[in-house]
Design a binder for these strands. Structure first.
Lengths: 234, 234
DNA sequence: GATACGCCGATTGTTGACAGTATCATGCGT
DNA sequence: ACGCATGATACTGTCAACAATCGGCGTATC
């Protein structure tokens, strides 16, 4: 038996309680989301099979799963390719995400507790500190955790899973670095509005603030990618 | 214009342009959604393979796809089971659906055309007639088409695909007959409100009406399934 | 009579092999 | 030199066989 430290070695001999294909889904997903498999690149079944020490069967099952999740694209007789998101698709996803996140805000507002409120304000003060001292690299993961916490606390597992799926999918966008940016202090001002709305217990107000938060992120992305018709060179 | 009068015989020898597994996904999906494979029942790989004249490989790929879509559940060494939706899950899906449908309304309101408006009012007058004459069986498909048309016209393919997926998933709910019901005339009054909002071009107003339409359907479902604590028998 | 144990059939998990197809390189003709 | 036909090659699509596992049933024991 391998002494399995949880270092991510390409070895999944440990798992026997879960199907090999399921484990492969997670592993390949990780390869994609970490960028090891770049968007647009082709996935070679044999290479992956050798890498993970299995045959092609489970690999194929895993890729079909990832296809349904929208992370890869399967072309007959050509192979499977890591999905590459166009700007249009990224914008579409933002619109789906804002709808889901808004709904999460609405649901959460309707059954807030003091503990949840405390956690939320905790996130915000943390982010305020990091924003002031300009520690961008530290700000981003807290920001992510803040959003995740809201969605997870909303009490709708289906909604949470879908939201997470779309956030993951956005990693396939070519300029995903732009997604992360967008004004720390500005962003945190919106966070305060969101938490205030949640604390008030007003579902409608919570929806609006949460929806708008994501919608503004979409607009920032659009502005930075598709600069408003201004004479560029020429 | 679908001139494809595809009689559904269990034969997919025609298809060669698309992978066998993809075709199987559609076929099995159909079996599930038509109820031929009942929620909770187990899917036997060999039986399906014989039925479609293939080996188990493609069947397995297809079921993994369906698992990611949420239509079936795979238990290791036990087999795949058609998902059975609990009341809680059905409610969760309604909340996701209302969020997506509301967003579709918002998006559609922001780029309405006369043609779209004409189509929408057409649906409504059709449904009015059917509701008056009490032709329930004919009302339901038109109602479905009306909702699909809105979502498809919103101009967000991702949103449309997701919405459709959740509507399909609701078919796995044990009492899906209840989902369809819920007052014809009442429903159509809400439809009018929706179309009025769309015609006004007010995205916010369109969102509210569309969201509320689904949310009310959820409430009707809850009311009919979880009857207010009243002494039942005993 | 009830419970624990062990065998057996059925079904899934996984594998290696074979067939078909798209891509790429080579060589020929113009 | 360029374009096109042709063959080699690598990869995917599909299949049938082997191994592992689970649930049910009968039996034995207390």
């Amino acid at each position: 038996m391998s002494s399995t430290t949880s270092r991510h070695v390409d070895d999944l001999s440990v798992v026997k309680s879960v199907s090999l294909a399921s484990a492969l889904v997670r592993e390949i997903e990780r390869l994609i989301l970490t960028g090891e498999l770049e968007p647009g690149s082709r996935i070679n079944e044999i290479h992956l099979a050798n890498r993970f020490g299995t045959s092609r069967g489970p690999i194929r099952e895993a890729t079909r799963s990832l296809e349904a999740k929208g992370l890869v694209e399967v072309v007959r007789n050509r192979g499977v390719f890591v999905r590459r998101l166009s700007t249009e698709e990224a914008v579409e996803i933002y619109d789906v995400r804002s709808a889901l996140f808004g709904q999460a805000g609405r649901l959460l507002a309707e059954h807030m507790t003091d503990e949840i409120l405390a956690r939320l304000t905790g996130f915000i003060t943390d982010m305020d500190k990091l924003a002031e001292s300009g520690e961008f690299d530290a700000y981003y993961p807290v920001n992510l955790a803040f959003h995740s916490f809201i969605v997870d606390s909303a009490g709708n597992k289906t909604l949470a899973a879908e939201y997470r799926r779309f956030v993951d999918k956005l990693h396939l966008f070519r300029a995903r670095s732009l997604v992360q940016g967008g004004g720390l202090a500005v962003s945190n001002r919106e966070h305060r509005e969101m938490v205030d709305a949640l604390a008030s217990g007003d579902g409608e107000r919570a929806f609006i603030t949460h929806w708008r938060h994501v919608d503004r992120a979409k607009k920032r992305l659009l502005a930075s990618i598709d600069p408003p018709p201004r004479r560029l060179s020429s």
